[in-house]
Amino acid sequence: RADKQHVLDMLFSAFEKHQYYNLKDLVDITKQPVVYLKEILKEIGVQNVKGIHKNTWELKPEYR
């Protein structure tokens, strides 16, 4: 399990490339446990629960 700041850096870097990611792809990118990753994502992102981007994560507007 990596340092939180290191995980945040990896996530922000990923979100610079694409606006939406599913959790599986973010786990592959960060190599972090799902529960730990979700904890961090809830602080900086929102999970889309409907629409064409259903079940994906994106950054909260203040982090874009």
Rank of each mutant, 00 (worst) to 15 (best):
L26D: 00
E39G: 10
K31Q: 14
T56V: 10
D9S: 11
S13M: 11
K50L: 10
D28A: 12
V7G: 01
Q5T: 10
D28N: 10
E43W: 02
K60Q: 04
H18M: 08
Y36A: 10
V49M: 12
Y21F: 07
N55H: 07
H6M: 15
K38D: 06
E39S: 13
D25V: 04
E16N: 12
E62M: 11
V46L: 14
Y36R: 10
V34G: 12
Y21M: 10
V46S: 09
L8G: 01
T56A: 14
V7A: 06
Y21C: 14
I52C: 09
S13T: 12
K50S: 13
W57T: 02
D3H: 09
K42V: 10
E62Y: 12
K17W: 02
A14T: 04
K31S: 11
L37K: 01
G51P: 05
M10E: 06
D28C: 11
P33S: 07
K24T: 13
H53F: 06
Y20G: 03
L37N: 00
W57R: 03
H6L: 15
N55L: 04
D3M: 10
I52W: 08
Y21I: 10
R1A: 09
P33D: 14
L26M: 03
N48K: 15
R64P: 04
E16C: 07
D9P: 03
R64F: 04
Q19G: 07
D3A: 04
K54R: 09
W57K: 04
G45N: 02
I29M: 14
K60N: 12
L37E: 00
A14S: 09
K54Q: 09
T56G: 08
M10Y: 02
K50I: 09
A2E: 15
K24I: 07
Q32F: 11
K38N: 15
Y36W: 12
E62L: 06
D3G: 11
V49W: 09
L26C: 00
K54T: 10
W57I: 14
K4N: 07
H18A: 13
V35Y: 09
H53L: 09
L23G: 00
W57E: 02
D25L: 03
L23V: 07
V46N: 08
Q5D: 14
D25S: 08
A14V: 07
V49K: 13
N48Q: 15
K31R: 11
K4V: 05
